[in-house]
Amino acid sequence: MALIRFAQASLTRAGATAPCLSCIDFALPAGQTLAVVGGSGSGKSTLAGWLAGWVPHALPATEAGVAEFDGAPLSGALPAVRAGQVQLVQGNPYAALTGCAFTVYDEVAFGPENLGLCEEEIRARCREALALCDAEALAVRAPSTLSGGEAQRVALACALAMRPRLLLLDEAFNRLTPAAADRLLERLRVLPMLTLVLFEKSFERAAGADLMLWLDGGVQRACAEAGVLFDRVLPALTASDAVRAAWRSRAADLWRDGVAAPCSAADALTRFAEVADG
């Protein structure tokens, strides 16, 4: 059964007449990865907030259509109650800091403490989350002194320590180097029992997902595999020069039928070679 299910769903902000998100229609089975892509202002962060259970408490809005998490309506539950299930890591990592902690370790432990878990369990979670994010060395630092990249690792560790079933990453790695971001994402993908939703404007970071959903001006344009959407979606997204070269070649009909679109720069090298040699 699908963990997340949207059917002709739309969201209208309080006080607005036109919906800020519409035609949202997809189903994501547990354990899979979805990438929501689109340019600036395409509605990615709004969808992230909706999935995080912010409606209507933190995001005053009304919804129409079907929007379900684990078979129950997505909105209405208190955000604090949903936090054990769903975690959202935002692009601005400083937004994740509660300000209730004087060290990074305390900040990571704050969530599990609120769940009323036993001390050993909390310590185990903190250890594991900090290790996964390569943030052990930051444990004794004061959260307010972290640089952007460091804060991003900590924000992710805070979310992971809650052991969510659904992890929403809203450009959560944009302050890390590309190599560090890829490494972290790879580790998250292999975590058992975790469903991931990425919100990205970078095609390549998104292309590794099982499913890609394209938002444009708050409207879902398409939802399919990355390779299928490649030709339509790339102009709106950022991508490496090699991948963009592949897009232009395909558009100019300088490509070979049967050779798939690349989903990374490394992939582009192989695909171009296939076209050239084939």
Partner: peptide, 19 residues
């Protein structure tokens, strides 16, 4: 800040642990 507190299940259970 309110969002961050909610996201970390603040006040979701009556009895919290303190390390």
């Amino acid at each position: 800040r309110a969002n961050a507190l909610d996201a970390r299940a603040f006040r979701s259970v009556p009895c919290r642990t303190t390390l």
